[in-house]
């Protein structure tokens, strides 16, 4: 096994790619650099982007059938004997193997990666049962688990390499829908680092995943309201970049978080925990308000559940008003 005669696909992270496709292409392209890499699939390779990897490296794709619990714990065993396993699947189904990730991966400190596609409302028409809105909260609560949610196809490709080079368990969210390219070829991704991607001084919009593009749009909307909004791409939710948050809280005095996830336990909670400790300031939370999703197109759902740019902008206005009331 482990033939190295496959040429790397050229296009990675093209605009219009979904994050899952970008992940699958990147994985296929860089596999030769990681001789112990194996990818674990539960019969959803066509949906997770892993079909690109399977095509390039069929002998390194391990099929587990529709049995996520066994797959997750087996990844712990593969890592224990020196392999570099990447567990792939839909976010909502990998969550059913939460306890396997907890015990057989993180508690054992195994170098195994979990990459979940189909998170949040971004899943769309499959409906509420398929939309994982709790996964960041759940995996963030596991000691030793790094949690990542990249924002665009290019960053997803960079993050794919970063998690393979990183030693330790990682949970990474990709995404189902076509995504707009936000970052240029000079973009750098570093685990644990947030990045200011738009400057501003009245409020900081902290977002991850598909909400980063919406936060940028919200910053445009806020110009008309006379508010200068800073935008932070917080691609690593755990460990959160507390220094950057302290700086933004100090310099802008108000924060809005935005995520395609329940408002409880995800990015917003992680930001609030950090800011409360280092530089308390008004925070508003944009996310799904502790409810389940439903069927619809992703953009319709984002509007229906109030996580699009206008809602982020409204929250920013509230945060700024609260800040001024406090001052």
């Amino acid at each position: 096994m482990f033939d190295n005669n496959v040429s790397a696909p050229a296009l990675i992270g093209t605009s219009g790619d979904s994050l899952r496709e970008a992940f699958g292409k990147a994985l296929a392209a860089i596999a030769d650099e990681f001789p112990k890499l194996v990818v674990l699939d539960a019969d959803v390779a066509g949906g997770t982007g892993v079909h690109h990897f399977r095509k390039a490296h069929p002998e390194r794709l391990i099929q587990f059938g529709i049995a996520e619990q066994n797959m997750m714990a087996a990844a712990g065993g593969l890592a224990a004997v020196g392999m570099l396993p990447v567990v792939t699947g839909f976010a909502v189904f990998l969550s059913r193997a939460f306890e396997q990730a907890r015990l057989s991966i993180s508690y054992c400190k195994r170098n195994a990666k979990i990459v979940a596609s189909h998170p949040g409302l971004d899943v769309g028409p499959d409906g509420g049962s398929a939309q994982a809105l709790e996964d960041i909260a759940a995996f963030r609560a596991i000691p030793g688990m790094t949690v990542i949610s990249p924002a665009d196809p290019y960053e997803t490709a960079l993050a794919t390499r970063a998690i393979l080079e990183f030693e330790g368990p990682v949970y990474m969210r990709t995404g189902r829908s076509a995504a707009r390219r936000l970052f240029g070829d000079d973009h750098v991704f570093e685990i644990g680092k947030g990045e200011i991607i738009r400057h501003g001084h009245d409020v900081t919009l902290v977002a991850c995943g598909v909400e980063v593009a919406r936060a940028l749009d919200a910053a445009d909307l806020l110009i008309d309201a006379g508010i200068s909004a800073r935008v932070v791409n917080m691609a690593t939710i755990k460990p959160i970049d507390i220094e950057l948050l302290a700086r933004c809280a100090r310099e802008t005095g108000a924060i809005v978080t935005a995520e395609d996830h329940n408002i409880h336990g995800g990015l917003g909670s992680a930001v609030a925990e950090a800011v409360a400790k280092v530089h308390p300031c008004p925070i508003e939370f944009v996310g799904v308000n502790d409810t389940f999703g439903t069927s619809g197109e992703p953009d319709e759902l984002a509007d229906h559940f109030a996580i699009t740019a206008p809602f982020i902008a409204k929250s920013a206005e509230r945060a700024v008003a609260r800040k001024r009331g406090l001052q």
């Binding site: 087996a74 712990g76 593969l78 004997v81």
Partner: peptide, 12 residues
């Protein structure tokens, strides 16, 4: 879980 982990070890 131990059984699945053992399976993963045998695969590896």
């Amino acid at each position: 879980q131990g059984f699945s982990v053992a399976l993963g070890m045998a695969m590896g």
